[in-house]
Design a protein around this nucleic acid. Structure first.
Lengths: 164, 164
DNA sequence: GATTTTATGTCAGCCTTGTTGACTTTCCAA
DNA sequence: TTGGAAAGTCAACAAGGCTGACATAAAATC
């Protein structure tokens, strides 16, 4: 009874528990992206487009550079995605007023519509999960995820409007 | 005070809270994969190889078909990955004894060594996160993730050895 | 015993999304 | 006025998804 980690309160740190956490992340992330992925297929967009749309919606008038640091990809990679979203009329690229080298990105009504469709699908799943497990579990979920982020990403994360 | 969702216990279901959950998943998953990704670079392998190695280690002697259903990719895609792991001597493919059509996959010592290196890196991050937040938060984390999975994936998830 | 189904492997070709490198244009700021 | 930052673009490449077609062996079924 008193073998292994010793105290019951440390059982959650056994390698088996950690492994379960790892697999939970893997399977849950698949579920997490499944619904948007299905929607994106109808528009022939991919996850990269979804990510761009999401973060432009979160921070309207954000610059390309800022988006790059959030998404962690090269400008060439982002540019290809952004190019198409702009050409398709989902994103507007506004020349900066103070600094005219900067481009400020905003969603057009068409872009906002797709964003709403995607995020609604994702929220439905998350709402169902949250409702199933209750507020305490949700608080724990958020704490673990935040602790698992890279520190620089944690900074981006805390910038959301409703931050606590 | 009594506006919005009404009761305090439902605040975790506001769209803003759900959005924070969505972003938390995005940033945390990036952190979650960052350490293995760095290791894989040294061997010129990708995440696909990591996933295959992980699930072969979890269920030794698993068949190709079983692995396909867990990973959710096409056999052509998996075959390319598996081919290289076998050629490189990380995975052994054994002809089935009862059914000779089946191939049973096991890690070689070399494969097990890489698996250990990868999963140790991932466990270190998860252990740090778990330790930071404590057992109750970890329980909540696992509950939310499980609730967020697709049901068929939840089935694969519960098959782990230490299942509760 | 012949036929069908299942499990696997493989070839070819396509797409998305990541990468590096090189180069240009614009334009702020020292 | 000039250096360097911000942005855009072209080209080429790789990983890892996908589809479709086809081959083989063995099991299962008729």
């Amino acid at each position: 009874m008193a073998e292994g980690g010793g105290s019951d309160s440390l059982l959650f740190l056994t390698d088996e528990q950690l492994k379960k956490g790892i697999e939970a992340m893997f399977f849950a992330y698949r579920g997490f992206t499944a619904d948007p992925d299905r929607i994106l297929e109808n528009y022939a967009y991919g996850r990269a487009h979804h990510r761009a749309i999401h973060f432009i919606n979160r921070s309207p008038e954000t610059t390309v550079n800022n988006l790059l640091s959030i998404l962690g990809v090269t400008k060439q990679s982002l540019n290809r995605v952004l190019r198409r979203l702009i050409d398709d009329g989902l994103v507007e690229s506004r020349v900066g007023k103070r600094d005219k080298r900067e481009r400020h990105l905003v969603l057009t009504p068409k872009g906002a519509a797709l964003e709403a469709e995607l995020s609604e699908a994702q929220r439905i799943r998350m709402r169902a999960a949250f409702r199933t497990v209750g507020p305490d579990a949700v608080a724990g979920f958020r704490q673990v995820l935040e602790a698992m982020m890279d520190t620089d990403m944690r900074h981006h994360f805390s910038l959301l409007k409703d931050s606590e």
